[in-house]
């Protein structure tokens, strides 16, 4: 499905890098020489495919966006922390691995295939997705491991994409899938999880106004380690639900499997709503460490988004459906 490119030893360059002018010119030079096409393609991304030779906005990664709803006024976590401390097992299980190794992921070209129980199945290129009206949502992110961040995401509501595909009346769930590119994702050599990474939401959860598809953070395109080129953000759930580098979105009638549930169904449930009263079997979820802070803070029910989401779980035993 993807056009495979031979990319000679360029694993250390990420497309989101702010490119100094000198380096940029150098790259143009390399391109003129007809070498390292892959590097330039990975770096320059879609502006090159558009045939423009200018230092387009995409290269710098600056995005045009408006402030969106539901943003918190809490202090934002430092950019370096947001982009240097990640769980993205496709690039290794250490939280420093994604920042080290995710640059090898080629995010252009990229398509998201939407299918399953819907009226308008479609495959959308990332360039088209980037043309959506973008907004900023400053959300709390609570990792199941007990740490949290505040991240200014740039993107658009998941609901808008879902409505575009017109899910039919049989559709009850939405399944998501991450790219599976063994040559570009060194973490796939390990079988710590079943690849590709999969996640799922109930359709009403996916349509909740909080559910967001991010294409950027801190005003720039998403760095690869944060799930470029497009990722889910569901801030009332533990971080692993917010699946990264999405290639497939499928409407289903049955509850889809999720990677962490497959790993250990007693430890990771389908819902995985942030809940200080339901502990992970191996550690407490009552408190969390906000990255950058010294003292632990209390974890909030639904990560503090109860007003927006509690209604969806009104008659459910959240100890059972954790």
């Amino acid at each position: 499905m993807f056009i495979k490119r031979i990319r000679p030893g360029n694993g250390d360059i990420s497309e989101n890098e702010v490119t100094p002018k000198g380096v940029y010119d150098q790259r143009r030079q390399i391109m003129k020489l007809g070498l390292g096409f892959g590097i330039t393609a990975a770096v320059a991304g879609c502006d090159m495919m558009d045939g423009t030779d200018a230092e387009a906005a995409q290269v710098k990664g600056k995005l045009a966006y408006k402030p969106g709803p539901f943003s918190t006024h809490e202090k934002k976590t430092e950019y370096d922390a947001v982009t240097g401390y990640n769980n993205f097992y496709e690039f290794g299980t250490d939280k420093l691995d994604p920042a080290k190794y995710a640059a090898s992921l080629n995010t252009r070209p990229w398509t998201v295939k939407i299918g399953g129980l819907c009226g308008k199945p479609q495959t959308i290129g990332i360039e088209t997705l980037l043309k959506n009206a973008l907004e900023e949502r400053i959300y709390r992110l609570r990792c199941v491991e007990g740490w949290s961040m505040v991240i200014p995401w740039i993107g658009f509501p998941l609901a808008s994409l879902i409505k575009q595909a017109e899910p039919n009346s049989k559709a009850k769930y939405v399944a998501f899938q991450t790219a599976e590119k063994p040559k570009e994702m060194r973490g796939l050599r390990s079988n710590v999880l079943d690849w590709p990474y999969v996640e799922g939401l109930r359709l009403d959860e996916a349509l909740n106004p909080l559910a967001f598809l991010a294409v950027g953070l801190y005003g720039d395109l998403l760095p690869n380690q944060n799930g470029a080129p497009i990722r889910l953000v569901v801030p009332w759930k533990y971080g692993f639900k917010s699946i990264k580098s999405i290639t497939d979105i499928t409407f289903t009638e049955r509850q889809p499997p999720t990677s962490w549930q497959r790993y250990g169904a007693n430890e990771y449930g389908f819902y995985s709503n942030v809940n200080p009263n339901v502990d992970h079997p191996r550690w407490s979820q009552a408190t969390e460490r906000r990255i950058g802070e010294f003292r632990r803070r209390d974890t909030l029910m639904f990560n503090g988004y109860g007003d927006q989401v509690a209604g969806m779980y009104r008659n459910m035993d959240l100890k059972k459906f954790f």
């Binding site: 191996r282 550690w283 009552a286 408190t287």
Partner: peptide, 18 residues
């Protein structure tokens, strides 16, 4: 890590096998 939160520490000791 726990900043002398003895209640949380005690809970950890009795509840968390590790």
């Amino acid at each position: 890590d726990q900043y002398f939160d003895w209640a949380a520490i005690w809970k950890d000791i009795v509840k968390r096998p590790y």
